[in-house]
């Protein structure tokens, strides 16, 4: 409450001044004073009830009920205005000059029911209870970061990468033709017949294990294990020194898959038997046009 924006405070004061018929400066001064404007009048009601009758010592009441004095004062004035009774005489120091003014202007509310009939037309009576500082709905933490514009910093990099890849592929395609063997013949299986290179690791495993294990269980569970990595690895750190196990396991997977794929591609000859590429030649059909 302490750091209400000035313009909100002013707006609230103006509305209240209009509703109560007192000068804006006075309301503003009241609001800026010791009293928090948001405190509910209901809380002060018992105090106000207790303070009926002439000659109230608000300072004493304030100490007794633990309610700030300005609130008691306001409640007392409001009650007097509602009931059409004269404002009780204040006893003690600091009987405010402000107390007199609202009392004088309470004349329109002389009829007991008049006040409860609502505010005069055209007067807004909502009041500012509190200002809630807005937070983003999605919890993004905003820490100061060293940021740069995407254009040109990122787009330039992407453009160079893209052009380089295009140049590389065009050059490769100009130099090396994609293979095209004889017409598909169901009756003549080439020896060896190999899967596409990215499956050659699996085919290589077929040479060691049961097809059920090598062709289904290992790749199936491997893929599932890959997908579940983020939910299994509960270690929040991203520093390599904190992630020795995770990095070791992945490296084993990466190197293992690479070795199996290279082995299946280059070290397997007719009958998918072991061979040395430098002795018997390479049996890797995708590269046929270079090999020939």
């Amino acid at each position: 409450m302490a750091d209400l924006p000035e313009h909100l405070l002013k707006r609230a004061a103006e509305a209240r001044a209009k509703a109560e018929g007192v000068p804006v400066e006075q309301v503003l001064a009241e609001m800026k004073g010791e009293a928090p404007a948001a405190a509910a009048p209901a809380a002060a009601a018992p105090a106000a009830a207790a303070s009926q009758g002439a000659g109230r010592d608000l300072d004493a009441d304030s100490a007794k009920f633990g309610v700030p004095r300005p609130l008691l004062e306001r409640a007392m004035l409001a009650r007097a205005r509602r009931d059409g009774t004269p404002v009780p005489q204040l006893v003690g120091a600091g009987a405010p000059a402000a107390a007199a003014a609202p009392a004088a202007s309470a004349a329109p509310a002389a009829a007991p029911k008049a006040a409860s009939a609502g505010p005069p037309p055209g007067v807004r009576t909502q009041r500012l209870l509190t200002v809630v500082k807005a937070n983003a709905i999605q919890g993004t933490t905003r820490e100061p970061q060293d940021k740069v514009n995407v254009w040109p910093h990122l787009l330039a990099i992407e453009f160079v990468a893209l052009i380089s890849m295009l140049a590389f592929l065009t050059l490769l395609s100009a130099l090396v033709d994609a293979p095209l063997l004889e017409f598909a013949n169901f009756n003549q299986q080439p020896n060896p017949s190999k899967a596409p290179w990215y499956f050659l690791g699996l085919q290589e495993m077929l040479a060691y294990f049961d097809p059920m294990l090598a062709g289904v269980l290992i790749p199936g569970f491997g893929l599932a294990a890959l997908a579940f990595i983020p939910y299994v690895d509960r270690n929040p750190s991203v520093r390599p020194s904190d992630r020795k196990l995770a990095i070791s396991l992945y490296t084993v997977f990466f190197v293992g898959a690479s070795i199996l794929t290279i082995f299946g591609s280059f070290f397997r000859g007719p009958g998918f038997n072991f061979t040395f590429p430098w002795r018997d030649g390479i049996f890797f059909d995708d590269l046929l046009t270079i090999l020939e």
């Binding site: 017949s193 077929l206 059909d285």
Partner: peptide, 28 residues
């Protein structure tokens, strides 16, 4: 990549895809 591999319809395509899709038959 695998489905594209068959499309040239040559010996390489046919038998590479044969080897690859035979593995699928082992799935329980």
């Amino acid at each position: 990549s695998f489905t594209g591999y068959l499309l040239p319809w040559d010996q390489l395509a046919l038998w590479a895809v044969t080897v690859g899709s035979n593995m699928g038959g082992y799935v329980p």
